[in-house]
Design a protein around this nucleic acid. Structure first.
Lengths: 242, 242
DNA sequence: GATTCATTATGTTAATATTACATAATAATA
DNA sequence: TATTATTATGTAATATTAACATAATGAATC
């Protein structure tokens, strides 16, 4: 039997942490110490934790959040995902040979978080951690641009089965806010009358007495998901793609 | 930098190989040498191949098939997926400590194959490889029963985006055959009139001149997928769930 | 060659869901 | 009080889905 070390060799987790702010999807990225190179948050899996737990841990470290919605979406297992020489060159002042392999397999997760509750926090190898607009962020190290692309595709495809609204929007929210979230993820606009009718007909929303105040215009109603109904609809894959 | 060996440590691939025969979904299982224990085909990933290539290799070894439709559906990364002691006990006469770890992470793939083209072939550790009805197969080693369950769920969910018909049914096929495939996967029956109308309206099927002969009854028409149309429909996720 | 049989092919109607479209109400600001 | 950007809401046309039953076929049997 092989000797076990503290980390599982050649296996990492990378997280596409998504938030929603100013009607835009954002992704949390890290800038490596003393460089202008950005990448996704990620790291190795420990021998004493599940792969999901590793992703949760990394998420918590980067965002300060406790309960987080995480979804495995893809394994990145190509033989060549990066050039070790190139990484060494780009990150030379912080390159630690002890933790780098010629090859690593990475498990991709996307995380849906409440933007307003996140405190971005760099790790030991990076000195900046911040949100970027999903439509306009820098070229990333490794195959991380590819990862973001596939994460978004997975999210779109799973929109009817994943609690996307629930996790990206702080409750309570208004129907226009929810609509803009859907529009942003799907990349197309929807008719507000049809959106509202369809969404309400699912019976998963509870309209509150109060309205959102402070906007300079007609105040929208506030809504909350009805947890049991919401979960039932998810199970059926009923969460509407208009 | 760590030393690379021939295999990636603690990382395996397991395959749920699905075929369709006698109107039933079947799964290909292996019986371990001199035991009555069954499991899914699987194995380690080599340093010199991608994870997908490892799955393809295992598939080819077990089925004799060249081109195979494979889909990653889930990583099984719990800290405890099996008891090494139990495995050692059950498989003692063939247990090779060199290849077993206390813990392994497995990447789950489902494969859709043409049942009629498969020649099941045991590997070095097993002496039987055969098809089992998906509704009635033995309790498997490790967490493999769980894997089969999740593979089927993934397949159902992805039915509209994956070329399921294309890979499980040898061409040409009849509409009743295609319907029974859908019914089997989804676990519910459909109205043949509605099924045919919907399926034909997708414009992805070409009706051939010939009919299927030999059945003791009215001969059904034969169909073939129109590749370009079929792929376009898949991209849109249009492949109908009635 | 006629009969039997299990299976296939097909059409209509009602119910439901989707799309397209425009106006009045509101809350803050000026 | 007027202005303004935004929210809330209804109706009619169209498309999709669901429910339903019967005639045609091809082999096998008599």
């Amino acid at each position: 039997m092989k000797e076990a070390t503290a980390l599982i060799p050649q296996l990492t987790v990378d997280c596409i942490i998504l938030g929603f702010h100013d009607n835009q999807l954002r992704v949390l990225l890290l800038r490596w110490k003393d460089t202008s190179f950005w990448s996704l948050p990620g790291g190795p899996v420990r021998q004493t934790e599940s792969v999901d737990a590793a992703a949760t841990r990394i998420l918590r470290e980067r965002t300060g959040l406790g309960a987080i919605y995480l979804q495995q979406f893809r394994v990145f297992g190509d033989e060549v995902r990066y050039s070790l020489e190139e990484v060494q060159e780009k990150l030379k002042h912080i390159f630690d040979p002890a933790i780098w392999y010629k090859r690593a397999i990475s498990i991709g997760y996307y995380a849906l978080v409440d933007y307003s509750k996140v405190t971005p926090l760099p790790d030991a190898y990076t000195d900046e951690c911040r949100w970027w607009d999903i439509r306009d962020f820098p070229t990333l190290l490794f195959d991380h641009n590819h990862m973001v692309k596939l994460a978004l595709e997975a999210l779109r495809q799973q929109l009817s089965w994943q609690p996307v609204g629930n996790n990206l929007l702080p409750e309570p929210f208004t129907l226009p806010e929810l609509q803009r979230l859907y529009e942003t993820i799907l990349g197309r606009s929807m008719d507000p009358r049809n959106f509202q009718r369809k969404m309400l007909s699912l019976g998963i929303l509870e309209r509150l007495e109060t309205k959102r105040r402070g906007g300079a215009f007609r105040s929208p109603y506030l809504y909350r998901f009805i947890p049991e109904k919401y979960e039932a609809a998810l199970k059926e894959g009923n969460l509407m793609i208009l």
